[in-house]
């Protein structure tokens, strides 16, 4: 079973995403900021990361750059999942190494579609 790390400071978003991902037969692990997410990745690299942008302690963009510089950090597919919906921000995220991008709010179909896009569904 593939593992997805959900990184979001909102408990509600993590819960909704977890429920959807479990119906798609993923195992999930959660972090509420980028720093905790990095610790999880150091211990065990997930197959994919659903990543919020704006979070306290360490934001999504800082996390992504740090992740991609870690040993093995190029492997996980990263899907940004954020309320940031400006074209320039989306382009920045993709340039920084994200594989896909979800603009909140999302539903099951969007999550499914994006995980299909990265080849995990």
């Amino acid at each position: 079973m593939k593992q997805v790390l959900i990184v979001d400071d909102s408990n509600v978003i993590r819960k909704v995403a977890k429920r959807i991902l479990e119906t798609l037969e993923f195992k999930t692990v959660e972090a509420d900021d980028g720093q905790k997410a990095l610790a999880i990745c150091t211990a065990q690299m997930p197959d994919a990361i659903l990543l919020d942008w704006n979070m306290p302690v360490m934001d999504g963009m800082t996390f992504l750059k740090a992740l991609r510089n870690m040993p093995g950090g190029a492997a996980p597919k990263v899907i940004f999942c954020t309320a940031e919906n400006d074209i320039s921000n989306i382009a920045r995220a993709m340039h920084a190494g994200a594989d896909e991008y979800i603009m909140k709010p999302f539903d099951r179909r969007i999550i499914r579609s994006k995980f299909e896009e990265i080849g995990l569904v």
Partner: peptide, 15 residues
């Protein structure tokens, strides 16, 4: 709308 462009459309094609 934002839902419609996220179902089936890769982000690269949206951009």
């Amino acid at each position: 709308n934002q839902f419609e462009v996220q179902r089936g459309l890769p982000i690269s094609l949206l951009l």
